[in-house]
Amino acid sequence: MGNINPSLLHVGSTLGAVFMALMVIFIRLKASARPVTIRKIWIPPLGMSTGFAMFVVPEVRFPWWWAVAAFLVGWFIFAYPLMRSTKFEAREGLIYARRSKSFAFILLGLLLIRTVLHEFINQYVSIPQSGGLFFILAFGMILHWRVFMYKRYIRMVPPHAHTPEPEADNII
């Protein structure tokens, strides 16, 4: 892995995770002022999916069952608090995410749990492998949360909003 000091890499990844959590809190608080759209629901997991490219590097790889376990922990355990804190409301014919007072605390709590788990797991796997495992855990969490949001959003959108209007320009 080159000449990078593992403890420096560990501190850097922890600080990076704290920074990302604070950015997510900030972005989510601002997002409640704008209407929710299907695009805004699906862009985060789609953008995050590019991170799977890290598994091209052999040092990041691990057994499939580890990946499945990490994904399932994210899907079933870590996503639950996010789903519980996500509420939508209809205003002026549009759907908005309702601000949750607990959301910032939930994200910080998840970060704390992730950090403690990271310390434990780093005793058994390399730093690149633990990074890959926690990426898959986070992806499972985000994907389940966004599937939940999408289902709730679709239930709130009026039926006529699901069918696109025909465009006159496309008539041949």
Rank of each mutant, 00 (worst) to 15 (best):
Phe76Met: 15
Phe148Gln: 01
Phe135Gly: 03
Ile121Thr: 10
Leu143Thr: 14
Lys101Tyr: 04
Ile121Arg: 08
Leu111Pro: 09
Gly131Met: 11
Val147Trp: 10
Ser100Met: 06
Ile113Phe: 10
Arg146Asn: 08
Arg91Asp: 15
Lys87Ala: 10
Ile106Arg: 03
Ala97His: 01
Ile95Lys: 01
Arg91Leu: 07
Ile106Pro: 08
Glu89Leu: 08
Ser102Met: 13
Glu119His: 07
Phe76Ala: 13
Val147Phe: 15
Ile95Arg: 00
Gly132Asp: 02
Gly132Met: 02
Phe120Trp: 10
Leu117Gly: 05
Tyr124Asp: 09
Ser126Thr: 12
Ile121Met: 15
Lys101Phe: 07
Thr115Leu: 03
Ile127Gly: 04
Ile127Ala: 08
Arg98Gly: 14
Arg114Glu: 07
Ser126His: 07
Ser130Gly: 03
Phe134Tyr: 03
Pro81Leu: 14
His144Thr: 07
Val147Gln: 00
Ile121His: 03
Glu89Ala: 09
Ile113Glu: 07
Ile95Val: 15
Phe105Lys: 14
Ile77Ser: 02
Met141Leu: 14
Gly131Cys: 05
Phe78Ser: 02
Trp145Glu: 02
Leu94Ala: 07
Arg91Ala: 09
Glu89Arg: 08
Leu143Ala: 15
Val116Pro: 02
Ile142Met: 11
Val125Ser: 03
Gly109Arg: 01
Arg84Asp: 08
Arg114His: 12
Met83Asp: 00
Trp145Ala: 00
Ser100Ile: 04
Phe105Gly: 12
Gly140Lys: 01
Leu117Arg: 00
Thr86Asp: 15
Arg99Ile: 06
Leu94His: 06
Lys87Leu: 07
Phe139Glu: 00
Glu92Ala: 08
Gly93His: 12
Arg91Ser: 05
Met141Thr: 15
Phe120Leu: 13
Gly132Glu: 02
Ile106Ala: 01
Lys101Arg: 07
Leu82Arg: 08
Leu112Thr: 09
Gly109Leu: 02
Leu143Lys: 03
Phe78Trp: 14
Leu137Val: 04
Leu108Met: 07
Arg84Ile: 12
Ala79Tyr: 04
Ser102Trp: 13
Trp145Tyr: 14
Phe139Asp: 00
His144Gln: 12
Gly109Trp: 05
Met141Ser: 14
Ile113Leu: 12
Leu143Cys: 10
Leu111Glu: 10
Arg114Lys: 09
Ile142Val: 11
Leu117Glu: 03
Glu89Phe: 12
Ile77Val: 10
Ala90His: 05
Phe103Pro: 05
Trp145Val: 00
Phe139Cys: 07
Glu119Trp: 03
Leu117Trp: 00
Gly131Leu: 15
Gln123Asn: 11
Ile142Leu: 15
Ala90Gly: 12
Val125Ile: 15
Gly131Glu: 06
Leu133Trp: 09
Arg146Gln: 12
Asn122Val: 08
Ser100Leu: 05
Arg91Tyr: 05
Ser85Thr: 09
His144Ser: 09
Val125Cys: 13
Phe88Leu: 13
Ser102His: 14
Ser126Asp: 06
Gly140Ser: 14
Pro81Gln: 09
Val147Ala: 03
Ile113His: 05
Ile136Ala: 04
Ile127Ser: 06
Gly131Ala: 11
Gly109Val: 03
Ile106Val: 14
Leu94Gly: 00
His118Gly: 14
Ala104Thr: 10
Met83Gln: 09
Leu112Trp: 14
Glu89Met: 14
Pro128Lys: 03
